[in-house]
């Protein structure tokens, strides 16, 4: 049985028919066609799939698409304005917060939520907030420095 829902992703409404068990991640990747959000562990450990739902950070691999009916979903594609990157995205480039890039969409979403709630986070707050986002390349220091630098720029 398919359920008709309307998913608003990065400000664009998508009328969709989804299986009740379909994850938000697979729905956004396969039906909406936005593949920035990644599938890593598929059970909420790694954060590569993270999106914002009405501003809340969510592991989209483990969230039912039907529950997001009518909600505002933000993916990594929705952060920049065209080619105009956010201060956080620019800081990731400048501070070496990106290597292979697989964790980056989730890191950016997670850090965006942090900076909205805590515009001037301490290093400890940054590390706590990003602890649900695993990176196997950078050793995290570049990522933490990027978030701190973005906060400095306000």
């Amino acid at each position: 049985m398919s359920i008709d829902i309307t998913l608003t992703v990065n400000g664009v409404s998508h009328p969709l028919a989804v299986d009740p068990h379909a994850s938000l991640l697979h729905t956004v990747r396969d039906q909406v066609g936005l593949t920035g959000s990644k599938e890593g562990c598929d059970d909420s450990e790694c954060g590569a799939c993270m999106m914002l739902i009405d501003g809340r950070p969510v592991n989209a691999c483990s969230y039912l698409a039907v529950q997001a009916d009518g909600a505002e979903v933000t993916t990594v594609e929705g952060l920049a304005d065209g080619n105009d990157l956010t201060p956080l995205q620019r800081a990731f480039l400048e501070k070496g917060g990106v290597q292979c890039g697989f964790c980056t969409p989730g890191m950016l979403i997670s850090a965006t939520a942090l900076l909205r709630d805590h515009p001037r986070p301490t290093e400890d707050q940054i590390r706590i907030a990003l602890s649900g986002n695993l990176c196997r390349c950078t050793g995290y220091d570049g990522i933490v420095a990027a978030v701190a630098a973005a906060a400095e720029q306000g």
Binding site: S44, G47, V58, S110
Partner: peptide, 9 residues
């Protein structure tokens, strides 16, 4: 509990 995503939801 969990991560900040777990706590938000």
């Amino acid at each position: 509990v969990g991560s900040h995503a777990t706590r938000a939801n």
